[in-house]
Design a protein around this nucleic acid. Structure first.
Length: 302
DNA sequence: CACATTTGACCCAC
DNA sequence: GTGGGTCAAATGTG
């Protein structure tokens, strides 16, 4: 699915999210056009010396666009309700310890790229080196703690090759005025608006809480509107890097960097990604879309 | 000056 | 005793 050079970008809904989405579309288009030019330049051949510099510049442009997309996508996905309320809202249970009742908060975790702005205002109150982890963990609480808001979060660098990847664990819900922030809770943004109307839907099929397959659909302007399937015994044991890469990098698998959603009992059901992220983002994608469950499934870092 | 961050000390569950 | 979470004084920043 290669977008034509003169093609216009999609027109999105006229709201804040739509504007962000439009920016994402534009940058994605810029990425694709740069790829096209890079391809044309590389085909000229025969004059390697003067073409070496443009080659390096193309790489840098593509990298810059990719980073811009990541940040935009990260902001978008954390600012709107991609996640079902059951999982955005952590719950708490009462635990009896001796004669005392102790409230145990069930946290939820998401993996995100920096900057991890989730729309709330946080105040850092501590930092500790964690025994099991090479990196330190930062402790944040809501700026409006004085107003009775008990929300806290812990931010820790993920133990994988990507230094920009962070694990953010949330405890308690915001009860402060920030909770009425329309960006966070906009009810009119429905899941189907967020899910890609474009190609590259990776759908995870689950069976008894185990992921059994990964499907990739190329639907928009795909030469063959076909659905290809990569069968994986259990997605949490992904080790077939090559097959995932081949799908992710296939020509009719272009589009937004990624989106992720979760339905039902927290089992990630669909997501999409585009070729620039290859397997690295696949790992991120899986972890992101299974926020709070990575401890259970133990997704690997490639 | 007000607010945020840093960092060593303290608390507490295990 | 140890490790993780929180406190609070010192320090930084706009």
């Amino acid at each position: 699915m290669m977008m034509g050079a003169m093609e216009k970008p999609l027109i999105m809904a006229n709201n804040a999210f739509g504007e962000t989405e439009m920016a994402i579309q534009e940058i994605t288009r810029g990425y694709q056009l740069t790829k096209q030019i890079q391809s044309m330049v590389s085909k000229l051949g025969g004059e390697p010396a003067p073409l070496q510099l443009p080659g390096v510049l193309f790489d840098e442009v593509l990298q810059a666009l990719t980073m811009a997309l990541t940040n935009l996508k990260s902001t978008t996905s954390s600012s709107v309700c991609l996640i079902s309320d059951d999982h955005r809202t952590n719950t708490s249970i009462e635990i009896k310890s001796g004669s005392r009742k102790r409230r145990k908060v069930i946290p939820w975790t998401k993996v995100t790229y920096a900057p991890h702005d989730d729309g709330y205002q946080w105040r850092k109150y501590g930092q500790k080196n964690i025994q099991k982890s090479k990196s330190s963990r930062s402790y944040y609480r809501c700026t409006y703690k004085d107003e009775g808001c008990r929300a806290t979060k812990h931010v820790e660098e993920k133990d994988c090759n990507d230094p920009h990847l962070f694990s953010v664990t949330y405890y308690e819900n915001h009860t402060c005025r920030a909770n009425s922030d329309p960006i966070i809770t906009t009810p009119e943004i429905e899941l189907d608006q967020l899910l890609p109307k474009e190609p590259n839907l990776f759908s995870f099929e689950s069976n008894d809480n185990m992921f059994s397959s990964l499907k990739v659909s190329g639907t928009q302007q795909s030469v063959n509107e076909q659905e290809r399937s990569v069968d994986l015994q259990n997605i949490h044991n992904i080790n077939d890097k090559a097959s995932i890469e081949s799908v992710a990098n296939s020509e009719d698998c272009l589009g937004p960097i990624f989106e992720a959603c979760s339905e039902g009992e927290g089992i990630p059901t669909s997501a999409c990604l585009s070729p620039p992220w290859e397997v690295m983002s696949m790992d991120f994608l899986v972890q992101y879309s299974s926020f709070g469950y990575d401890d259970i499934f133990g997704f690997p870092c490639f």
